[in-house]
Design a protein around this nucleic acid. Structure first.
Lengths: 241, 241
DNA sequence: CGGAGTGATTTA
DNA sequence: TAAATCACTCCG
């Protein structure tokens, strides 16, 4: 997030906190947190910090990453919370997060999936391509730190989990849908993440990339003998339209 | 038990297995099992191993902890059959499934989520509404039995899981996208499920329902004091557009 | 920034 | 509840 040393109210006066994002490698996007004593000494971990401060400061519930005191650290409790009292700012935040999430699956997910089959069918080793592409398909972690306050993370997790991991049976209302115009739900506002504020040019670029990926994919499928299956599907299309 | 890499006869030649005892902390005494590919890459779980090996090795009855094939594992899981090669019909099927999945998240997911907040803001108890709506948001179970043959289930699960549960870091290509016209990916063919073959009338109906749901949601948000937050978002919109 | 070691969370 | 999986810390 920042390369700047910030005051840290949870520590004695004069202590600073710094967060540095990793730029490359397997852990690109992750960050390292450092603290600086009033004299400028750098600390890279909580144990190191605790050794230095000794018993002058109680770090039992100090969260090294956020720099805040987290009373929950003392409790081993799991948070299966379904509280009735979430605030309206959370309503707003979650709405944004969900919209962003759908948006993410739709854009990056589909794009990467097309890319995957394209490469796969061109003869690249399956396992390599799989590893590579699957890495790009997750829900970005960075999103979780964007909200108005930290406690929103629990709700976001709960929603994202329920969306994909529930084991309840299928229900009725999935039987109708509006495939032909899904865009109607996605035009109200920008996503929260700065990285996802896009210009019209970005959009044109991405459209082009995806069109090309899809075209390549379809050509590859055809060339590999799926013409018959495609033919069948077209028949169905015809009858429905 | 050991800190030494042992040959693992249940895997292809060159694969090694290692067991490491945890020495300290709350989990001291427990052990972790790792595998190493012939090239030296380390694997820390069976899912990770399966993603890498793909369809080249059948891990259905492979026990990660012992490193041996356990035929009894087959009995417990009713559908763990898997072919050595996946046929082109499977490629086709998976492509369809994935398209359907995006489609599903986009339509039913967003719709139900709107419905959820609408109800929530009208005063229904949160926990009840949550339970009810989350049930409707999952990936329908019925879909899994639609494919050309049962062994496709494994692949479908792998893809669905990877999309949401991967642990790799976020990468660069998520920074551009095409929010304004997501429909470009969703017009090639009909989904596989009979329940999802829709008529134009179905679509008009669903569009209407969703429009109404969104309208209700937005009105409720405004009425509850989120006008300021919405205002902020519009400002951002304006600058980007 | 990597990755072994261990905590935290999820699954069965 | 333990076992399995995943995530993160911390130090090189």
């Amino acid at each position: 997030m920042e390369r700047k040393r910030m005051d840290c109210p949870a520590l004695p006066p004069g202590w600073k906190k710094e967060e540095v994002i990793r730029k490359s490698g397997l852990s690109a996007g992750k960050s390292d947190v450092y603290y600086y004593s009033p004299t400028g000494k750098k600390f890279r971990s909580k144990p190191q910090l605790a050794r230095y401060l000794g018993n002058t400061v109680d770090l039992a519930c100090f969260d090294f990453r956020t720099g805040k005191m987290m009373p929950s650290k003392l409790q081993k409790n799991k948070q299966r919370l379904r509280n009735d009292n979430f605030s309206l700012s959370k309503v707003w935040y979650i709405t944004e997060v969900f919209r962003y999430y759908v948006f993410y699956v739709l854009t990056n997910g589909v794009f990467c999936f097309s890319l995957f089959w394209e490469k796969r069918l061109k003869g690249l080793r399956s396992s390599d391509v799989t590893e590579e592409v699957l890495k790009t398909m997750e829900l970005p972690k960075g999103l979780q730190s964007v909200g108005p306050d930290m406690s929103d993370e629990t709700l976001l997790s709960a929603i994202a989990s329920a969306l994909h991991m529930s084991s309840a049976p299928i229900t009725g209302q999935t039987s109708t849908a509006a495939e032909k115009n899904p865009a109607i739900w996605l035009n109200t506002s920008q996503p929260l993440c700065k990285a996802f504020i896009v210009t019209d040019e970005d959009i044109r670029e991405q459209e082009l990339k995806v069109h090309q990926a899809r075209r390549s994919l379809e050509e590859a499928l055809m060339a590999d003998g799926l013409a018959r299956a495609a033919e069948t599907t077209r028949d169905i299309d015809g009858k429905v339209a």
